[in-house]
Design a protein around this nucleic acid. Structure first.
Lengths: 106, 106
DNA sequence: TATATATGCAACTTTTGAGTTGCGCAAATT
DNA sequence: AATTTGCGCAACTCAAAAGTTGCATATATA
């Protein structure tokens, strides 16, 4: 498992749109293909990428497969991003200080 | 401006490493190239991508260019992620409830 | 049982992107 | 002034990824 890179997975705009859709409700591959102007097979390949990095989960229902958004996996991004969070808070505090200093000089 | 996609920029592992480096301290292209086993020109291309989506900012100093991490831009990513945050909190609450129910049944 | 539908897999083409080599320009050094 | 150094740009190669067509399989429906 984890054949695919989660960063690579969200790099594609179509896959991001799929994730946004699935975050609202689970859908079958056919239903997704109808939403985008794309063949079913093309969507199917995106699904494979998203599935392999565990961003979505399949739920078999007869011959249909409903794909669900896996929120837990999305948190990996959040974790990666957190290394910068300290940094941007600092940069903004510095900006705040600068603005305050300018104000006081007036 | 904004020729490059921020998601695309982050998709590459080398560019992610560059961002991590620059979040700690500003560096010149040559300094970055030394960190990775890569030609300066290869790094230079990554710099271009990161610059064009405003994830880094150049600071000219003589003939050297120090590139700084732009924390503000990274927040855009955070913003995109926030659409799922509600979702994953919900999914975890549901999991919590399920686990609680199972416990109570014992 | 025959047929239609939903899906995944494989082969192929086309596009994109990472990395290299070579060049030119501007700032430092001699 | 000549040379070295730091950098960006353009052309090229090569690998990966997006999308297509065709096919196989499994589940419904007639």
């Amino acid at each position: 498992m984890m054949k695919q890179d989660i960063f690579q997975a969200i790099a594609d705009p179509t896959r991001r749109a799929i994730l946004t859709l699935l975050a609202i409700q689970a859908l079958t591959p056919n239903a997704m293909a109808e939403k985008f102007d794309m063949t079913r097979q093309a969507v199917s390949k995106h699904i494979k990428v998203l599935y392999e990095c565990e961003l979505i989960k399949p739920e078999q229902s007869g011959r249909e497969i409903y794909y669900h958004f896996n929120a837990k996996k999305m948190q990996e991004f959040d974790h990666w991003l957190s290394q910068f969070r300290q940094n941007w808070e600092t940069q903004f505090n510095q900006l705040d200080q600068l603005l305050t200093t300018i104000k006081e000089q007036k």
